[in-house]
Amino acid sequence: MSTTVAEVPDAHGPTPAGSDGEELPTRPTPRRSTLGQRMRREWQMHVFILPGVLFFSLFAYIPLLGNVVAFQDFSAFRGIFGSQWVGLQNFANLFTDDEVLRAVANTLIISLLQIAFVFPAPIILALFLNSLIGERIKRVIQTIVYLPHFISWVIVIAIWQKVLGGAGPVAELLDLLGMHGVNIMTDPDTFKVLVVSQVIWKDIGWGTIIFFAAIAAIPTELYESAATDGAGSWRRMWHITLPGLVPVISLLLILTVGNLLTVGFEQLQLQQPAVGADAAQVLDTFVYFRGIAGGDWGLSAAAGLLKGVIATLLVIAANRIAKRLGTGGIF
């Protein structure tokens, strides 16, 4: 007796037939909708994002066309079309201008100090507050450290001047200890440390919001399992909380590296008269004083454009390094 083996239709073979031997109709391939069709179908969403598109178009993208000033001996009276074209001369002058080199050095020192001390400060505070058992105590501390973020730099500098200035309580205390004439607010040698301390005091509470959200997203089962296995609070923080914060830390660190050449303009400008340009001149204040106040538009525009290009390259490089380390990136 012969055995007949049923043929199994190939997945890539002909269209399967029906019970009466007729071919079943194939399922039509859905047509991809065009951009116009999607815009008509989702017009509410496009109307919703329209104000944001207009804002960035008017105040971010269209002003980028003004970077042509960096290649001109620009004069506000002659305008862009009447100013003389000088090519890369403004960029060449940047590397021979002592004021530019001093501003770059101050910017890098302050930025590196901020990465070393300001960036980890919210992480440490978030971990500390997360370890508190009392919810009421945690909320009181959060409210206190959040408040300085909503104070303008003018008020912040005024407060620090009252406390650390020559007539403040700190100076009076040092005077009683035999250290006469100490004025921390006007000392160029300690100014960069002062700037970093002010940023920490003002923004440490606000920065913890992102890390609190990341901590809240960590499954509580991990903490319960670790506690069952005998892990203490320190080991739970080291092996559960910190690894859970790594993606957020990586993202923020990439953005921070992109702002390496950007430090607080208002903060430095307000304190520059007290400590002098040698200690407080950075790229942002240089662009303001040399361009807007001094009228050297071409050189200041070249400095701003070069800073933007370097920031873009830093973001790309930091993003690639983060991906190679396995922590993810922003694009």
Rank of each mutant, 00 (worst) to 15 (best):
N183D: 15
L173H: 02
V170F: 02
I210A: 08
W206P: 08
M185T: 12
E172T: 15
T190R: 11
G181L: 11
L194E: 00
G181K: 12
G205Q: 00
V199G: 10
V182R: 04
I184T: 08
V196L: 06
S197C: 02
G207L: 04
H180T: 14
V195W: 10
I209L: 12
P169S: 02
G178Y: 07
T186F: 06
G166P: 02
G178P: 09
G178S: 04
V195T: 07
P169D: 06
D203E: 13
W201I: 05
H180L: 10
N183H: 09
D189V: 15
P188L: 14
G168P: 01
T186S: 14
G165T: 03
W206Q: 05
L174F: 08
D189I: 14
I204L: 08
G181Y: 14
L174T: 05
L174D: 05
Q198I: 06
W206A: 12
G181P: 07
N183K: 11
S197T: 07
M185F: 03
V170D: 01
L176Y: 15
L174E: 05
H180V: 07
V182T: 09
L177W: 11
V195P: 08
A167T: 13
I200D: 00
L174G: 00
G166K: 01
L173Y: 11
L173R: 15
Q198L: 13
P169E: 03
L194G: 04
H180G: 13
V195N: 06
L173Q: 12
I210K: 05
S197L: 07
V170H: 00
G181S: 06
A171S: 15
V182Y: 09
G168N: 02
G181I: 07
H180R: 15
I209V: 09
D189S: 15
W201S: 03
V193D: 05
I200Q: 01
V170A: 03
F191Q: 09
V195E: 05
K202L: 00
D203Y: 15
V182L: 06
G166R: 02
T190H: 14
S197A: 13
H180F: 13
N183R: 04
G166F: 07
L177A: 10
K192N: 04
G205R: 02
L194C: 05
V195Q: 11
N183Y: 14
L194T: 00
T186A: 13
L177H: 09
T186R: 10
F191A: 10
T208W: 07
I184R: 00
D189G: 13
D187T: 08
I210T: 11
A167S: 13
D187F: 01
G168Q: 00
T186C: 05
T186V: 04
I184S: 00
V195C: 10
A171I: 06
L173T: 14
I204A: 07
A171Q: 03
G207V: 12
I210L: 08
M185I: 10
G168E: 00
V182M: 12
L174I: 10
W201G: 01
A171Y: 05
V193S: 11
V196T: 13
V182H: 10
Q198C: 05
F191V: 02
A171K: 06
V182K: 03
G205A: 00
T186Y: 05
G178M: 07
W206I: 11
I210F: 04
G205S: 01
P169N: 02
P188V: 13
V195D: 09
W201H: 01
G205V: 01
D203A: 15
D175I: 10
D175F: 11
V199F: 09
T190M: 13
N183C: 12
V196N: 06
V199P: 04
F191P: 12
